[in-house]
């Protein structure tokens, strides 16, 4: 690559190659933070300025009204997950961070799909729905809204299957996660 600070030209390919590392394992990071104004901005801002890419983010209350739980999924190849968690720990409002082990974690997300469904394709669509334990939550003359919960991978699979029918809209929450067994998340 061109030496930094010098007049040597830098090709766009070189620049892009540096930014396109992926394929690391998916990480689910669970953050327990004080339920105070601006905490979401602090966490999101930290990711942005350190160049960490968030794939999904879900925020909600916990059993303690003073605390919120943030569940993030990200790709561990782009930045070492270790550096992500250490930087998060420096936020004063963040109390606890866990990089959850996939085998010991239950992860779910909720997705809603609005799919084109006229008479001919409706039956097939309903079958798919059943296989994925989805629920039809809205029906109109030419479309269905289906609700599916599951892991990110399951929702991805459902998406791939319904896309050919004519996917009009989709909304996903991003995963939330909790540790299996008695242990704390």
């Amino acid at each position: 690559m061109g030496e930094p600070g010098t007049k040597e030209l830098l090709s766009l390919d070189e620049l892009e190659a540096a930014g396109n590392l992926r394929t690391g394992r998916k990480h689910i990071v669970s953050i327990l933070a004080e339920n105070k104004p601006g905490v979401l901005t602090r966490i999101a801002g930290l990711f942005a300025r350190r160049g960490f890419n968030i794939d999904t983010l879900a925020v909600g209350p916990t059993d303690d009204p003073d605390l919120s739980r943030f569940t993030l999924t990200l790709d561990g190849a782009v930045h070492p997950i270790d550096q992500v968690t250490k930087q998060l720990h420096k936020l004063v409002n963040v109390l606890k961070i866990r990089d959850l082990e996939p085998e010991e974690t239950l992860a779910r997300e909720l997705a809603m799909f609005k799919v084109a469904a006229d008479g001919s394709s409706r039956g097939e669509l309903m079958q798919l729905c059943e296989i994925f334990r989805g629920k039809v939550v809205d029906v109109s003359r030419r479309s269905l809204v289906v609700e599916v919960t599951g892991t990110q991978e399951k929702v991805d699979a459902f998406e791939r299957l319904v896309r050919p029918f004519g996917l009009i809209e989709m909304a996903r929450t991003g995963e939330i996660a909790i540790a299996r067994g008695r242990g704390e998340t």
């Binding site: 104004p37 601006g38 901005t41 602090r42 801002g45 300025r49 420096k90 004063v92």
Partner: peptide
Amino acid sequence: TIGITMPVVKHSFMIR
């Protein structure tokens, strides 16, 4: 001010 300085502070307090 809190938003502008957030990336460059150790911590900040918005008094409410």
